[in-house]
Deep mutational scan, measured.
Amino acid sequence: TGEEYIAVGDFTAQQVGDLTFKKGEILLVIEKKPDGWWIAKDAKGNEGLVPRTYLEPYS
């Protein structure tokens, strides 16, 4: 389980392990790392690192 967040901007993977997403996408945050990069999963089940500055809590 995780917390749902909504993307407030588009993000394109910079390196292997990053997750590309579009503004408005709902992501499930699995782990919040202290460096500001969180592990998240998208609706298709893809998992990767995302920058927390692009996310806001979804309710």
Rank of each mutant, 00 (worst) to 15 (best):
V50C: 06
P51I: 05
Y5S: 01
K41A: 06
L19R: 01
G48V: 02
L28Y: 14
F21N: 00
L19K: 02
P51R: 08
G24C: 06
D42C: 03
I30K: 07
Q14P: 06
P34Q: 13
I6M: 10
K33G: 11
T20C: 05
G48D: 00
I30N: 03
E47F: 14
P34C: 10
K44Q: 15
D10M: 04
G17K: 05
E4M: 13
E25C: 07
W37S: 06
G24H: 06
T12E: 12
K22W: 08
G2K: 09
G2W: 10
K32Y: 07
G36F: 05
V50I: 05
D10K: 04
Q14E: 09
E3I: 11
A40I: 04
Y54F: 11
L28H: 10
E3N: 10
Y5W: 13
T53R: 12
K23C: 09
K23Q: 08
G9I: 14
I39R: 14
G45I: 01
G9E: 15
E4H: 15
D10T: 08
E3K: 10
K44S: 13
G17A: 06
E25V: 06
E31P: 01
E25M: 10
Y54N: 06
D10V: 03
G9V: 12
K41W: 08
T12N: 12
W38F: 05
R52H: 12
A40N: 00
G24M: 03
D42V: 02
G17R: 06
R52C: 11
I6Y: 06
A43L: 11
P34L: 10
A40E: 00
E31V: 11
G9P: 00
T20M: 04
S59E: 09
G2Y: 14
Q14N: 11
I26S: 03
Q15P: 03
A7D: 00
K22R: 12
K44W: 15
F11K: 03
K23I: 08
L49N: 12
W38R: 01
K41Y: 10
E3P: 07
V29M: 02
E3S: 12
E56N: 07
V50A: 09
G24A: 04
A40P: 00
V16L: 14
G9R: 14
V8F: 05
E25K: 02
A40C: 08
E3F: 10
Q15N: 13
K44E: 11
E47V: 13
D42L: 03
G17Y: 07
P34H: 12
P57T: 07
L49M: 08
L27G: 00
V29L: 05
I6A: 04
G48S: 01
K32Q: 07
V29T: 02
W37H: 06
I30T: 08
V16C: 08
E4Q: 15
G36R: 04
I30V: 10
G36Q: 06
S59G: 13
K44C: 10
P57V: 09
D35E: 08
A7Y: 02
K22F: 10
G24W: 06
E56Q: 13
T53G: 09
A43I: 11
K33Q: 10
P34E: 15
D10W: 05
E47P: 05
E4A: 15
D35P: 02
P34W: 10
L19E: 00
E3M: 12
E4T: 15
Y5L: 02
T53W: 14
I39P: 02
V8G: 04
Y58T: 07
G45Y: 04
T53Y: 10
Y58F: 12
R52E: 12
S59A: 12
N46M: 11
I39F: 14
T1A: 14
K32S: 04
T12H: 13
L27R: 00
V50Q: 00
I6D: 01
G36C: 07
G48T: 01
Y54L: 15
V16K: 15
S59K: 15
I6W: 06
Y5G: 01
G45F: 04
I30F: 12
G45E: 05
E47K: 10
L55F: 04
V8R: 14
V29D: 00
G17H: 07
I26Q: 03
Y58A: 09
D35K: 05
K32V: 05
Q14H: 10
V16H: 13
D42K: 05
N46W: 05
K32G: 02
G45N: 07
T1M: 13
V16N: 11
K23L: 08
A43M: 13
E31N: 09
A40D: 00
I39S: 06
D10R: 03
N46H: 09
G45P: 00
G2D: 08
E4I: 14
E3W: 14
L27C: 02
I26T: 05
K44Y: 13
T20L: 03
K22T: 09
G17I: 04
D42T: 06
A40W: 01
G9C: 10
A13C: 05
T20W: 04
F21P: 00
P57G: 04
D18Q: 15
D42M: 02
A13G: 13
Q15I: 11
G45M: 07
D35L: 06
T12C: 07
T12V: 10
G24L: 03
T53V: 14
V50E: 00
G24N: 07
Q14C: 14
P57C: 05
A13V: 03
G45R: 04
G48K: 01
G9D: 13
S59Y: 14
E31Y: 13
F11T: 02
E47I: 12
V29Y: 01
E3D: 08
G17F: 06
S59R: 13
K33W: 09
Q15D: 12
Y54M: 13
L19D: 00
D18T: 15
G24Q: 03
Q14V: 13
A43H: 14
T12M: 11
P57I: 09
L55H: 00
E31W: 12
E31L: 13
E31T: 12
L28P: 00
L28M: 12
T20F: 04
D18S: 14
I26N: 02
T53E: 14
D18R: 15
P57W: 07
L19F: 03
F11M: 04
V29Q: 00
V50G: 01
T1H: 12
W38K: 00
F21C: 04
I30L: 14
L55T: 01
T12P: 05
P57Q: 08
P57F: 09
G2Q: 11
P34M: 11
I30D: 02
L49Y: 14
G9L: 15
